[in-house]
Amino acid sequence: MTRRLVAVLVAVLLLAGCGVPADKQPRSVEPPFGPPAAPAASSAPGRVEQAFCLVRSGQLVRTVRQVDTAGGVDGHLRRLLAGPTRAERAVGFGTALPGAVHVLGARLVDGRAQVEVEPPGEESGRSDEVLAYGQIVCTLDSRPDVTGVSFLLRGRPLEVPRADGSLSAGPLTAADYPALTGPD
């Protein structure tokens, strides 16, 4: 019995000595891009946090907003389509959506967000469609109830650009846009 207790104490002391040494000063840690592992706790009573992918310096960057209710995929998408808030614009966030993708609505079907779009007019002159589609995919993919995002044009699957330039009918996730993702 005593021998076993000594062995356990020695093992505990050895394990306690292992690990990462403490830094002398605090350092910032960059979270990975993509959907959070679990919904974050809200800092304001009665509000929830919701992730949005916006554009800064030609890259997709995830930001979190406090909203009154999480709502469904269509409501989440409508908030993205409204563009960056004044505070987000002040720190350099923008959007590639106006003129690049005309969204009619979204719904959740068996875990997949289906986004109905209409083709942009000839006069749009936008060349950043990949960022626009990436914004939608990365925003909706941040939701715990979404396993992928697909796009429909007049009810039929639409192939949209991925970060590598290839076209895909989906389902797409934030992982399809790694070359375009920047730090949070």
Results as ranks from 00 to 15, higher is better:
L104K: 07
G134R: 01
G121S: 12
V101C: 09
L131F: 04
R86F: 13
L97Y: 05
E122S: 00
R78I: 13
V103P: 01
E123F: 01
R86M: 12
R107E: 06
C138R: 08
R107T: 03
G75M: 14
D74F: 11
R112H: 10
I136F: 01
V91Q: 12
P84V: 12
A132M: 08
R112F: 06
G99H: 05
P120E: 03
G72W: 09
R86T: 15
A113M: 08
D141L: 01
A132K: 06
S124F: 02
D141F: 00
V130L: 04
A96S: 14
A113H: 06
G134F: 03
D110R: 14
I136C: 02
R86I: 12
R86S: 14
F93H: 15
C138H: 08
G125E: 09
P120S: 02
G99P: 07
V109G: 00
V103R: 05
L80C: 07
E122D: 06
G94W: 01
G83M: 09
D74I: 11
L131N: 02
A82Y: 03
G83K: 08
A100Y: 07
G99C: 11
I136L: 09
R89K: 15
A96G: 05
E118D: 13
S127V: 10
A113Y: 01
V130T: 14
G83N: 06
D128K: 06
E122Y: 02
D110V: 04
L131W: 06
L131C: 04
R143N: 05
G92W: 02
V117A: 01
F93I: 13
Y133K: 05
I136D: 01
E122W: 02
R112S: 09
E129F: 08
L108H: 02
E88K: 02
V117I: 11
E118M: 10
G94P: 01
V117G: 00
V91M: 14
A90I: 10
G75W: 11
T85V: 13
I136P: 00
L80A: 05
P84M: 14
Q135A: 03
R126G: 00
A96F: 03
E129L: 11
V115C: 05
L80Q: 09
R78F: 07
R86Y: 09
T95P: 01
G92A: 04
A87H: 01
L140W: 04
V73D: 10
V109N: 07
G111I: 04
V130I: 06
R143T: 05
R78W: 05
A96E: 08
Q135F: 01
G105T: 05
Q114C: 08
A87P: 00
R126H: 01
F93R: 15
G99F: 10
Q114T: 10
R78L: 14
A96T: 09
S124T: 09
L140H: 03
R78Q: 15
V91C: 04
T95I: 14
D141N: 04
G125S: 03
E129D: 11
L77A: 09
A90N: 06
S142G: 13
T139V: 11
